[in-house]
């Protein structure tokens, strides 16, 4: 178990390092970052001054080392637009995104797991078909469009939910649904497939032979085994969702980290964009790492290995 965790941790760190390099080199994709900051109309002296100020005249690897060294201390430089430390900007916005992500994954699990279980207990029943339709439709639904439809229905027509902002818990209802809906199909399919497989296992027959009630068989004996891969999928999905929150946050004008990313891209605020890519990637890496550890911990066969 410890060996496994250490191995996974090493891999996670290596992935994080590589991602950090990629997000850093994005800065150089545009050619000369100094021009980007100074603006197209700046004269050569201004550009040269900026180049010296930000250290763009050094070799790229030196700049990367410098940036990484500071990033390790949560110093991502200064935003070109706000003239504030990027780390502070992100920290301020992250709580909204995290709230949204947690709500989204909880919503997805609350809907998808029961649906998947019922679908597996009664294959080809009406509920199974509805669940299948929801999962197929869910994968095809553009999230921005889904969000706008919800706004039209609940904010414009019915006027029961606020269309944008993040002031009250009601503001989070529609974004949660949109973001959660995105993670639902995969979770539901995996729950259904897992339950179907587990329900035909010999140990389920053993449980019935013991005289356990159907409920006990389903939830204590079957779900406990079927849920193991679902838990790690949920953790991975959480990582994906945070990265995908940019669309949802822009639809509902939720001023979270995703919204900040969108604004910063529009403003050519590269240090902020770089830092955000790294932060979202780190979230994904941390969550997949947690998923692996959780998986190993939930499965006795791996726990003792």
């Amino acid at each position: 178990m410890l060996r496994f965790i250490l191995k996974r941790l090493g891999l996670a760190l290596l992935v994080a390092l590589t991602v950090s390099f990629i997000s850093f080199s994005l800065l150089f994709l545009s050619g000369d970052p100094a021009i980007a900051i100074a603006g197209e109309s700046a004269n050569a002296e201004d550009v040269a001054a900026i180049r010296a100020l930000y250290g763009f005249d050094r070799p790229m690897m030196v700049q990367y080392g410098d940036w990484l060294w500071h990033a390790l201390q949560f110093d991502f430089g200064v935003s070109y637009y706000f003239r504030l430390p990027v780390a502070d900007l992100i920290a301020e916005r992250l709580s909204v995104t995290m709230t949204l992500g947690v709500c989204g994954i909880v919503f997805a699990l609350l809907i998808a797991v029961p649906l998947g279980v019922i679908a597996a207990i009664r294959p080809n029943s009406l509920i199974d078909r509805i669940a299948l339709f929801l999962s197929v439709a869910g994968q095809a639904m553009p999230s921005f469009w889904f969000g706008l439809i919800l706004i039209v229905i609940f904010a414009i027509q019915l006027r029961i939910l606020p269309a944008s902002g993040a002031d009250t818990w009601q503001h989070f209802i529609m974004p949660t649904i949109v973001l959660g809906y995105y993670a639902m199909p995969a979770i539901m399919r995996l729950t259904r497939a897992g339950m179907l497989e587990v329900l035909s296992a010999d140990y389920i027959r053993t449980a019935r032979a013991k005289g356990a009630s159907e409920g006990r068989v389903l939830f204590k004996h079957a779900l406990r085994n079927a849920i193991i891969p679902v838990v790690s999928l949920a953790a991975v999905q959480m990582g994906f969702m945070l990265g995908g929150s940019i669309v949802v946050e822009s639809v509902f004008a939720l001023h979270g980290a995703g919204y900040l990313a969108w604004e910063s891209i529009g403003r050519n605020d590269l240090p902020t964009v770089q830092a955000l890519i790294l932060v979202f990637a780190l979230f994904y890496i941390v969550f997949t790492f947690l998923a692996d550890v959780l998986n190993a911990w939930l499965d006795p066969r791996m726990r003792s290995a």
Binding site: V19, I246, I265, V273, I277, F280, Y284, T288
Partner: peptide, 17 residues
């Protein structure tokens, strides 16, 4: 590494640049 990159964000950034 690829899975760790937030697709929407990276695509947005690169297309913007």
């Amino acid at each position: 590494v690829r899975l760790a990159m937030p697709v929407v964000l990276v695509a947005l950034a690169v297309v913007a640049i």
